[in-house]
Design a protein around this nucleic acid. Structure first.
Length: 551
RNA sequence: GCGCUCGUAGCUCAGUGGAUAGAGCAACCGCCUUCUAAGCGGUCAGUCGGACGUUCGAAUCGUCUCGAGCGCGCCA
């Protein structure tokens, strides 16, 4: 791509002062196509005026339409470069050569990452907060894959402990009630209306006279299956569903506890076994084993992360709800205390989702039944809008899910803006068959990988040239966008990029007529449209949003 | 009280130390006999919560401060 070539040229001019530097796309159009601040960076160690350095560098670079058509020095010491048309043409042809792979790094060329997300209790419906974690997690996984990492997606099933016992108790009470028995409905039971459909389904597949234990187990499985199907319905799939119970069955949790005891970072108090979390900066120490001998969630979680590290991943990334951030220091401390590299664990906290309905913000509360489930919102807005809305803002930011807006299937809904750009690209190709039946599409396809096809893009009047170059440069930004989005753990960056790309395309579409009497220009523009389509499709693929051929 | 996260236009948000802080929505004004108007152009809109500091340069980094959300269970 053009940036590498330009860097090479600058590096040649730098001689012995070669240093890593960035080429950035300036915000203002007067500052050329790309700019570098290398002179300002060098001024410190060379103890020279950045303007002088910049002029020196620029003086060594020969202007050549094939590479750099214009180069200027600006105020503090920027070097602003206008890229040659040949080089841009060549870059567009490279987009075509790469096709579906454009923007993506070589698969599995980088570290192995285990991404854990959602990890909800199998005790009921997934709510919109889980939905956000699911969408962000799946987009991050796609993004890491696109950036060349080897990614495994994992759901940690919290199928053990207090909540599960409570589920089992609630289930049995509900079962007996359905049998017509008089039951005491305890206050901490899961709400009947939440369980009823799962319990009925479990009963029907469990035969008559189930035991309390088998029915509880069956309901758990039923809920888990429902979660799995629901997640899959909006493109959230996992390579592994890791059961917490399995850590207890296999003795892994016990073994980890032994290691913790040996580490000296535990003590007994009031019959319980405690971890000295405070020594690692936690706000308080944490219980590992309760006074009655049952291990806590934390104990299993430490064992789980030990297990993950032993599976040979270079990096573990967990998405946790922001309400769990208090666990981070303790978990990392525990891993460190048993000799594991806690730095391999990275936590991303996904902030809360609140809801806006009928123009009013409502707080979710399980107690008042004010829980908005993934299922109900998904049904109303569809998978594409659901994913797009939940990915649009950075995980660290709280977000307001505007149900009324997401329901709207019109232009206020930004996902359509991007999809519409893709559909428009496709539409032009459909038009060709009607308007230019003599144009040989196969011939065109073959020529897309040669830069000569695109040279005529630049032989147009000012306004058209401007729109064309904007679109080309934006398309060519895509690979960098993917890698920085991965580094910043920010799939929303891709969503924003696609919005900008769509805007540049729509503008191009308005200014430049693709199908015309000028055959070489028509072909060149068709090629550019196809490159746009490829880029939008590749970006939407990362977001798990569909790229419709027509709308 | 301590800890984590956030604070940018009326609203929703971009902006990994760079040049005059940007989009969308809302409001107002224009553009369809021509490839999809789910589109394009224009107007209006800002003490980047505040203070001090680091730097050639700060919305971005540091310290303090104000405000909001969350956390500080032998729940997960």
């Amino acid at each position: 791509m053009y940036k590498e070539k330009i860097k090479e040229e600058i590096n040649k001019a730098l001689n012995e002062n070669t240093k890593a530097f960035a080429l950035e796309r300036p915000k203002t159009k007067d500052h050329g196509d790309v700019a570098t601040n290398i002179a300002m960076i060098l001024s410190k160690e060379l103890k020279k005026n950045p303007l002088d350095i910049a002029n020196e560098i620029v003086g060594k670079i020969k202007l050549d339409e094939r590479l750099i058509s214009k180069i200027e020095v600006a105020k503090p010491g920027f070097i602003n470069i206008t890229v040659g048309n040949d080089l841009l043409s060549e870059s567009i042809s490279e987009v075509h050569k790469l096709g579906d792979l454009f923007g993506f790094d070589k698969p599995k060329s980088k570290e192995k990452i285990l991404l854990e997300y959602v990890s909800a209790n199998p005790t009921g419906d997934l709510h919109i907060g889980h939905g956000r974690q699911a969408v962000i997690g799946s987009c991050l996984a796609n993004l890491f894959e696109a950036a060349g990492y080897d990614v495994k997606r994992e759901f940690y099933v919290n199928d053990y402990g207090e909540q599960i016992s409570k589920l089992s108790e609630s289930t049995w009470a509900l079962y007996e009630k359905l049998q017509g028995k008089e039951v005491e409905w305890k206050e901490d039971y899961y709400p009947e209306e939440l369980l009823i459909s799962y319990v009925k389904e479990a009963i029907s597949s469990n035969g008559s006279n189930p035991s309390k234990e088998s029915l509880g187990q069956k309901v758990k499985e039923t809920i888990l299956k429902a979660q799995r199907n629901l997640l899959a319905s909006f493109n959230v799939v996992f390579d592994e569903w890791f059961s917490e119970t399995s850590l207890h069955k296999s003795n892994a949790a016990k073994e980890t506890l032994e290691k913790l005891k040996k580490s000296g970072f535990t003590y007994e108090k009031e019959g319980a076994l405690w971890f000295k979390a405070e020594e690692f900066g936690d706000v308080r120490d944490r219980v590992l084993v309760r006074a009655d001998g049952r291990p806590t969630y934390i104990a299993a979680d430490i064992a789980y992360h030990e297990n993950k590290l032993n599976r040979g991943f270079d990096q573990l990334i967990n998405l946790w709800g922001a309400d769990h951030h208090g666990q981070e220091v303790g978990l990392k401390g525990a891993l460190k205390s048993i000799g594991l590299d806690e730095k391999k664990l990275e936590l991303i906290f996904v902030q809360m989702v609140s809801l806006k309905k009928d123009g009013q913000e409502v707080k979710m509360s399980k107690r008042t039944g004010m829980v908005v489930t993934v299922a109900e919102v998904l049904e109303e807005v569809g998978s594409d809008a659901f994913r797009y809305f939940l990915i649009e803002s950075h995980p660290n930011n709280r977000m307001v899910f505007d149900i009324d807006l997401a329901k709207k299937q019109d232009k206020d809904n930004p996902v359509y803006y991007i999809q519409y750009a893709h559909a428009r690209c496709c539409s032009i190709f459909r038009q060709i068959k009607e308007q230019l039946p003599n144009l040989n599409i196969d011939d065109l396809e073959k020529n897309l990988s040669s830069k000569e096809t695109f040279l005529s893009l630049f032989k147009v009047e000012e306004a058209e040239l401007k729109a064309t170059k904007n679109l080309i440069l934006k398309i060519l930004d895509f690979p960098d966008e993917v890698s920085t989005a991965a580094i910043l753990r920010s799939p929303s960056k891709i969503a924003n990029y696609l919005k900008e790309l769509a805007a540049d395309f729509h503008q191009f579409y308005t200014v430049c007529r693709v199908i015309s009497k000028d055959e070489s220009l028509t072909k060149a523009r068709l090629g550019l449209i196809k490159a746009t389509k490829i880029t939008i499709a590749n970006g939407l693929k990362i977001l798990g949003v569909s790229a419709p051929e027509s709308m």
